[in-house]
Write a protein that binds this DNA or RNA. Structure first.
Lengths: 146, 146
DNA sequence: TTCTTAAATAGTAAAGATTCCTAACAGGAG
DNA sequence: CTCCTGTTAGGAATCTTTACTATTTAAGAA
């Protein structure tokens, strides 16, 4: 996300026409740090914007990813789009499915294992899975009844 | 994979009945270091074993995972089962979809970021994506025609 | 060996995510 | 204003995975 551009300028700079649908989706996914799925975007917008189809959501998110405006990763078999395009990792709760960003290791240089020296690495993804603080507590007390 | 048990013994030790289907799937996925998908297993076995359904493949792989005989991870939206159950990372070619194991960092202790200290971490997954050596070469020459 | 029972299986249906297809539509340059 | 091309909605299609159910069967007991 860029502080120096409003959304129309940002889209125009990537040769994307300023359609109402695109502006709507952009307003949602580029304006705050969040992890969204195609379905999530559609659900949040469809009431206020009946002229919006799942198809367009998929296309738009894909275009934003191609432009580098969003970062895409897979979580539990679903595509998740992240407006935080800086290098960072994720953690996901295996119980409530919450996803959080982990602060990037700016001090730790992008490290590539020696066995990949003859590859042309494009990206790295790291995901920790476990119980978030809230679910860990719930799980502890649930053990009495389970 | 255990060197000290044959497959029937291994299955029995996990309270799994020795059905032909289960033995067949086990023979394929537990006998060599490989990454398989449910569909891949089914495709490889269905000709020689007509009495095998996708459903059974899914169930069997799921049971093997529950027993700790296989490790499961997601790649490109598909479930992948790995007979290498030791802690290790993966790299995947974005062009030919090949998946390779990266030698585990036995020297590097399981590292958990400070922001997850109040989580109960269950697993960590790290995936590098890029062009494998073969595809990188193909891609270089393809640029002339693309 | 035969019996018994719970586990396992095949087949089908269903659910959910994503892509494909196509005709209609509309942004924006000229 | 007009035209061209990118964009969109809607529906169909594809693919993966899970759910359901009647039937079969492994394996221990008699």
């Amino acid at each position: 996300m860029s502080m120096m551009h409003d959304i129309p300028t940002l889209l125009r700079s990537h040769d994307l026409r300023l359609t109402p649908q695109r502006l709507t989706v952009a307003g949602l996914v580029l304006s705050k740090q969040a992890h969204v799925t195609a379905r999530g975007v559609y659900q949040q917008l469809k009431d206020d914007h009946p002229a919006l189809s799942m198809n367009t959501v998929y296309l738009t998110l894909g275009q934003f990813e191609a432009c580098g405006l969003l970062q895409r990763f897979e979580m539990n078999g679903n595509a998740v789009f992240d407006s935080n395009t800086a290098r960072h990792d994720h953690a996901s709760c295996s119980r409530c499915a919450t996803i959080i960003d982990l602060p990037g290791e700016e001090d730790e240089p992008p490290w590539i294992p020696a066995s990949l020296l003859d590859w042309q690495i494009q990206s790295e993804q790291r995901i920790w899975t476990g119980l978030c603080p809230a679910c860990r507590t719930d799980s502890d007390s649930a053990q009495l009844s389970d």
